[in-house]
Write a protein that binds this DNA or RNA. Sequence first.
RNA 1: GUGAACGUAGCUCAGUUCGGUAGAGCUCUGGAUUGUGGCUCCAGCGGUCGCGGGUUCAAAUCCCGUCGUUCACCCCA
Length: 425
Amino acid sequence: MGERITAPKGTYDILPADQAVRRWVIGVASEVFRRYGYGRLDTPMFEETRLFSRGVGESTDIVRKEMYTFEDLGGRSMTLRPEGTAPAARAYVEHGMHTRPQPVKLWYHWPMFRYESPQSGRYRQHYQLGIEAFGSESPLIDAEVIGVLAALYREIGLAQVELRINSMGCRECRPGYVASLRAFLEEHAVELCPECWERARINPMRTFDCKVRGCRLVLEGAPRLTGSLCPACAEHHDVVRRHLVMQDIPFVEDHRLVRGMDYYTRTTFEFQSAVLGAQSGVGGGGRYDDLVETIGGPPTPGVGFGTGVERILLALERSRSDLPSAQPPSVYLVALDETSRSEVFALAHELRTAGLAVELDHMGRSVKGQMKQASRSGAPFAAILGEQERADAGVTLKRMSTGEEQQVPRIEVLERIVEAGEDER
RNA sequence: GUGAACGUAGCUCAGUUCGGUAGAGCUCUGGAUUGUGGCUCCAGCGGUCGCGGGUUCAAAUCCCGUCGUUCACCCCA
């Protein structure tokens, strides 16, 4: 071995045993989204590369070094979707959704692709659940979007998440702020680490993220965006905060929260989980009032979030033990001799047609082996069929929990199993 | 892209220090008086010790490279 082909680096297989919890999370999410009025959107897994380079921003890490970009056979540059907002915005424009009643509220469950170095909670292909609301610049919808995510976490029992919020300002107030911050950083360049020197050039606000103590000390004295917001942005931020309080959503103000996409304006936010380790962000998002226009649509405000399904699952596994698991079959059919196998096969067909989940042996196992399988399958009943039962046109129903057996007429088997199933509820 | 640790049966791992031609538990299959599970006992299946090269009479064990995993940086979900 060793010549074995394995899943590509940073990817993983989702096995049957992993499906139940995942489906449950996605199910709860879709229910929450429905309640808040979001409709599902699906877009292609790849897009023209310029959608991302233009939409997400040339200066972002995603565009600079993390995209799965390839040329198709027609010579077009395509990119596997690294994030969901730009494709959603593209679809909004392409389908003329600005002519519908605003806001247009969309949700998605999509795989995302980023060429990154994998680590705990970080993959090259991962899934995100997300929503986008286009067309309204009301701060109430910022608060609602955050409320949707908070509701999702609450309903799947993901406790211990902390919400951080910040405002990035708008095209009126941010440029001035960034200029003054950059000036400040240049003044203190000698005290900063080389990485921060680079950050100051590309995205000065990133320097707030630096872990180096010297940098942090310098940054303590740096001008803050919160203090430079224009009156409109300050008011917007204030209203968002008030409506978070109204929904009983606790949050902390974090002026250092700078998210990785260039399109954010005004509100940005991120939920972090203490149980996740270094990749502590479970979900985040914000407002992007200039994005739609940037990709060639009419000027349209928007706000949304993305939350990582793998990180939700990881956090759930570390904080809860009562997670959903796969449903066992209702009955496991056992053939006592070779001639009964056909009979059992026919019975399986009948019961399955009637809607029951039925298992039976296809490995030529001994009776003992079949019983073992019946037990392992978790089915509440084994239905046993042999010479005796064939003669009587019956089936022996065995209740696995007690071992109690009873021969019943074959035509009553379905009924008995269904009844017993209902009793247990 | 950078750094560190690790890579032995499907899974969890021992064996690597002081090189001598592969082990355990779990899983899986069969059996413990003929048509029956969960506990126990017995037996069996299953690995060219990630891959490639080097040192050596001899390497899972030492050296180099490579791929992968994990954790961290970076960044993000």
